[in-house]
Design a protein around this nucleic acid. Structure first.
Lengths: 257, 257
DNA sequence: CTAGTATTAAAACGAACGTTTGAACTATGG
DNA sequence: CCATAGTTCAAACGTTCGTTTTAATACTAG
């Protein structure tokens, strides 16, 4: 009546609506009835087209992660072939990994900020099958980038690199998912933090671009931070006293003794 | 029969079991029937003692966050009175904020790693009332620490500080919550990363101590990372070329031009 | 000991959930 | 034009959910 429906329109409409609602209310918090009502399709359509609610969630992710995984591998391949065997710079690796992800937020056709937020929130979803599924989808790409970081930082213990990769993933996920979560905690609106904004409401794609600018230096700084060192049980005492921030930033190249 | 029950034992047993199950399966994924069966109490006990499932979750958090909020404020007060008006070092502030949190993981009486993981996961829970509740519980402490960071880094734009506080909270939450989440993603077991472990299974309190050692340098490095600067749309090109990591780490003291 | 309050117990409530069914509708090809 | 496969539809299935009710039990004050 209002919109014309093609043959596969029902499938796509369900996927779009489910993506939005899973993002806003989570997997368990979103019922098939709300999804089908919002999409203006019949309740049975989900089970007909996808088989089950779980399979619907998997399909929501698959159609986006296909591009992300392909693009991330492509970016790393381009870097490595461009370097000709030489080790890459960590900043290049991070840019390929996180920059590719954040590009999704700038392009509505790739999922936009909606999918980006969904991805960030779902990584910590308590449901078992979700974590298992996402781990499987991520495994290959993560492994490639992990190895790239090992080669780029040969003097840093591999365990330390994995830890910091873990931390970086966390910072990124929260930064993405927490537009209304932790911004409430921090007591600021995103629009107040965007910088040179134009008018009241801020565009989602512009937000993604700003986010990328802010996040990347933070991640690089964390990745390059000095190693824990040998002081064990009293980690809060800095090695030297003096003015506000006296000790110069040592790099990761030094190995722990 | 097996264990004796005092008067308030039912309440506390429900809280302990709910804390564990909410951590493992989330709020919506944990039914009152599973909680009461596990706690070996009657189904109606939750509504009798707490009023509703929502109120139960709030109480689970309140009994732990009371200590955390008090201790975080106390630590900051001690720092500020000890400095006598002089600005604090960012490392001191981070140590007070994150170190206090991580101490929960080392002490089972404060909630241990169970509550720490619950806290990390719940911050991204999609349920509205949960985020609202946690934001209210956190507001005062976050505001105090935010102001402390503003004073400690007077030359850094406040928006940038809030962004990085946001990133740090994310890295910490994921690091805590993701013992089985992102460790699967990274393809490593925590025990492989702990370093000088003793035997097979690793103690939770020992894990919290290791986590603290790894996380704090990362957060400090991220907080002190150079500002985004003026280069806008091509943030992945470093200002100077050369060997693997040529540019020396500039500090936050420099203001963006 | 008794009265009265606090707690526990068993059972049921209505609502919402994911899923299935079987008939109605639509479109395409012989 | 009818047969047939693909799709939509209304209705119902059985289960599980949070909550409430009502009675039985444990505890305490007078």
């Amino acid at each position: 009546m209002s919109d014309q429906k093609t043959n596969h329109d029902t499938r796509d409409r369900i996927l779009d609506v489910a993506e939005q609602l899973f993002m806003a209310h989570g997997y368990e918090g979103t019922s098939l009835r709300v999804i089908t009502n919002t999409a203006e399709v019949n309740l049975a359509a989900v089970n007909y087209h996808f088989g089950s609610k779980e399979a619907l969630l998997r399909e929501v992710f698959r159609r986006r992660l296909a591009w992300l995984n392909r693009e991330r591998l492509r970016a790393l391949d381009a870097l490595e072939s461009g370097a000709g065997g030489a080790p890459l710079k960590p900043s290049q690796i991070l840019e390929a990994f996180f920059g590719t992800l954040l590009r999704i937020g700038e392009d509505e056709a790739l999922g936009g900020m909606t999918f980006l937020r969904l991805l960030g929130r779902t990584l910590t979803d308590p449901a078992e099958f979700i974590r298992t599924f996402l781990a499987g989808e991520y495994a290959e790409v993560i492994e490639r980038y992990k190895q790239a970081l090992f080669s780029a930082l040969p003097d840093v213990p591999k365990a330390e690199i994995v830890w910091r990769l873990h931390f970086m993933l966390g910072a990124m996920s929260y930064a993405i998912a927490g537009t209304d979560v932790l911004q409430v905690v921090t007591g600021c609106e995103l629009s107040d933090l965007a910088g040179e904004e134009t008018a009241g409401a801020i565009d989602d794609t512009a937000l993604a671009r700003r986010l990328s600018q802010r996040l990347m230096p933070f991640l690089l700084g964390g990745l390059r931070a000095p190693l824990p060192g040998c002081l064990d049980s009293v980690p809060h005492v800095p090695p030297s006293e003096g003015d506000a921030e006296p000790q110069t930033q040592r790099h990761l190249q030094e190995k722990q003794p």
